[in-house]
Structures are given as C-alpha cells and as structure tokens.
Amino acid sequence: MLLDGLSFDLLLSIALIALATAALRARDLFKSIVIFMLFGLLVAIAWVRVHAPDLALAEAAIGSGITGALFLGALNRIERKRKGAASGRLENPVNGSTSGAWAVLLTLVLTGLLAMAVLSGWSYSGGLADEALSRIDESGVVNPVTAVILNFRAYDTLLEIGVLLLAVLGVYAVCEGQTMRDLRRRDRSKVLETFVHLLSPMVVLTAGYLVWVGYKEPGGAFQAGALLGGAGVVLLLSGRELPLHTARTVVRIILGGGFLVFLLAGLLVMKDRAFLEYPRASAKHIILIIELACTVSIGAILTVLFSGCANLLAAPSEEEGP
C-alpha cells in the first residue's frame, strides 16, 4: 500500500505543525486567520484518526467555521476603525519584547516535560473507559460520549452551558450602546441570497438529525448547536437583521432556555434521587428534551457572540425580522 495509516498520520501531523507555525508567524493578520481556519479543518481530520467523530463534527463547525468568523469579524471592525483614523494597514512586528528569552525557556521546559511524560508511559491503559462503558445501559443512550456529557457528567455540562450564558452576557455588556454596522444594501447579491435561502432550511434539518441521532451515533446538542450558530452567522453576513437584542423577551427565553430546561430537569428528578440523576426508564426522553433546548440555545448564543464581535448586534426595531 502506497500510503498506510501511520504515514498519513505523520503527514497530517507535519501539516498541522507547519500550518500552526505559518499562522502564528504570518505578518498579515488576515493571512494568520485564514491559515488558522485551514488548520481547524485539518484538526477535524485528526479527530477522526484518533476515533473521535463527535469532536470532528464539532471542530469542523466551530474550530474552522465560527472561531474564524469571530476573528475575521473583529479584524474587519478594527481595520475599519483604523482607516477612519488614517493609521494605515494593520501590520505588526512579530515580537520584539524583552521577554523573548524567558518565553523560549518556559515553552521548552513545559513541552519537554510533557513529551518526556508521554514517551515514558504511553501504553498505560487506565482511564475511566471501563467505568463508563460498563454502565452505559443505565444512561438511557447508546453513544458513550453522549452518555458522559448528558448523564454521568451532566453537572459539568450544565455549568458549561452556564459559562456560555455568561460569555453572552459579557458580550452584551461590552457592546452596549454601539452603533451597528449596516450590511443590508451593500453586500446583497443574488447568488448569496439564493444560497442562504437553500442553505438555512437544510442546516435546521441537519441540526435536528444530529440531535436525534446523538443518542446512538456521533452527534448531539453541541454539534447541532454549532451548525445552527453557523447558519446564524451566514444569515447575519447576508444582511438579515436578526432580532438579537435582549430587550425582546423571546431572545432572553431562547438564550437562557437550554440552561433553564437542564436545571429544571435536574431539579424535577430530585423527589427521590440526587440532582441530575435521571430515572432509568425515562432517561432517554429527559436527555432528548435537554438536548433540544440546549441546541437552540447554543445556536442562538453563538450567533449573538459573532454579532457582538462583528459589530452587528442590532438594537430592537419596530418591525419583526424575517
């Protein structure tokens, strides 16, 4: 065979390290960000190679898609402001601070120690796999990753949705009172319009499928939510004015809904068991309800996060958005 698994892994690893170096060293920030997005796509392939298809789905949508869009949105906004102030294009010295030697030393020591630890005892097979896999029947789902996220370690996930909400609150607070950039007329093209018309329903359908299939195969609330968030970003970029301001009650309900449903589900089972310890018979349904609510919330949260960075957070207007 011309290209076996290990040579592919080596090639991919070299490509990943080369792309990381290129992104971090490029003088032009725009170039850095585009290389970062390409890096995200290749990382998604790496996830498949280490048997993590759940992560590949999330990484393809978030790592290369939404994070890249966030950076491009922020860069665009900063350069726009720079142009107003006539201070020219954004080029930066790659470093030049006096802490360079310390940075090299610290990095070498840390990575060296980590690499030594890995090389000395990699074949050790400990971990929590046995505990998780032997009790998978009690979780109500078949996909072990979903079982860990929404049942065995549901407490972590609940707090993590809380972290997302906090980030959204932070973005709202930081972006308060800024004038919104108007994309509506300038960037509208027939091709983009048609594309968005065709894409949006497909994304919603795919997200619904990912949530549903998550109980037995790769998928779930985070992957589906990331997809919805991506659709939100595309809608915003195509000039739709999404009603994202917290003055609308419906926006607050959608953003907080995932956390609220999760919390309520955890509390309601507490009549005769511990917090978030679902009864075995109804665990599957409880998990599905939580996942559906979280999917919508995560999608909305990611859209708001992008709109904050790209200066597209719309103040409430009189007429309803599309």
Binding site: A52, L55, L70, V145, F222, I298, C309
Partner: peptide, 22 residues
Amino acid sequence: IDPVPHALVLTGIVVAVSATAL
C-alpha cells in the same frame, strides 16, 4: 475508547469559542 476525555474536549471546544468571542 475512553469517552470521558471526548466529553471534556467537546464541551471544551464550545467553551473555547465563547471565551474567544468574549
């Protein structure tokens, strides 16, 4: 496959993007 690190990283990816946005 140990599913626990997978779950940690899946939530970690989403937390990372929200922290980046903030």
